[in-house]
C-alpha cells in the first residue's frame, strides 16, 4: 500500500511571530444540495456530531466539523481514515435527495496559524476585517490570500484553520511564513 501524505507533509514554521503548520491529513467532503432540506442537513450533522452552522459560519470539534461554503454547499470535516465510512453513511441519508457528496481530502491542504499575532499575520494577506470585534469565533470566510483562494475560520482563540487548494499549498505556506517573519508585528489589533 502506498504511503499517503498531505501536500507538505506536516511542514511547520515556528520561528516567526505566529506558528504556521500544515496539519497533515484531514478528511474533507464537499456536500452540495438544498441546505434547507432535512435530508441534507441530517446527512451533515449525523456524521459529524456538530450542529448545522448558520450561513457564513462553521462548527468544528477536533477533526469533525461543518463549514458553510455557499448557499448550496457545505464542507464536511472528518478524520482522514473515516472518509469512506462517512461517505457511505451520507449516501444512505441522501438516497432520495438531489445532492452531491464527494471526497476532496486529497485536493485540499489545511494550515493552522496560531499564536497571539495570528490575526495580524492573516490580516496582512486577506481583504477581510479580522479585528477581534469583526471576525469572531464561529465565523467562516472564503476569500483570497494574496493571489490564491482560501477559506478560514477560528478553530480556537488565536488559532486559524486555513483551507487552500493542494496545488497552492507551497505558495500558501511561503506566504504565511513571510507574513509571520520575526519583527513584523503590526500591533494594530492590540490597541
Amino acid at each position: 500500500m502506498s504511503n499517503i501524505v498531505s501536500a507538505l507533509n506536516n511542514k511547520a514554521y515556528a520561528d516567526g511571530i505566529a506558528e504556521v503548520r500544515e496539519i497533515g491529513l484531514q478528511g474533507m467532503i464537499t456536500l452540495r444540495g438544498d441546505l434547507a432540506s432535512s435530508a441534507v442537513k441530517s446527512a451533515a450533522t449525523s456524521v459529524t456530531g456538530v450542529k448545522m452552522p448558520a450561513p457564513g459560519h462553521a462548527n468544528s470539534d477536533g477533526q469533525h466539523g461543518i463549514c458553510w461554503m455557499s448557499p448550496d454547499e457545505l464542507l464536511v470535516l472528518c478524520p482522514y481514515d473515516a472518509v469512506a465510512d462517512t461517505l457511505e453513511k451520507m449516501g444512505k441519508s441522501l438516497a432520495k435527495a438531489h445532492a452531491l457528496y464527494v471526497d476532496v481530502s486529497d485536493a485540499r491542504a489545511v494550515f493552522e496559524l496560531s499564536g497571539p499575532h495570528a490575526r495580524e499575520v492573516l490580516a496582512k494577506l486577506v481583504p477581510v476585517d479580522l479585528s477581534p470585534a469583526a471576525f469572531t469565533s464561529g465565523m467562516f470566510r472564503r476569500s483570497r490570500m494574496a493571489q490564491i483562494p482560501a477559506a478560514f475560520w477560528l478553530h480556537a482563540p488565536d488559532s486559524f484553520r486555513i483551507v487552500t487548494f493542494r496545488s497552492n499549498a507551497q505558495y500558501a505556506f511561503d506566504l504565511l511564513k513571510v507574513a509571520a517573519q520575526p519583527g513584523s508585528e503590526v500591533g494594530y489589533f492590540k490597541g
Binding site: 457564513g56 455557499s70 448557499p71 481583504p127 472564503r142
Partner: peptide, 11 residues
Amino acid sequence: PCCGVTGEETE
C-alpha cells in the same frame, strides 16, 4: 446578495 458577504472588488 447570495452569501451576504461584503468584500472589496478583488474578491
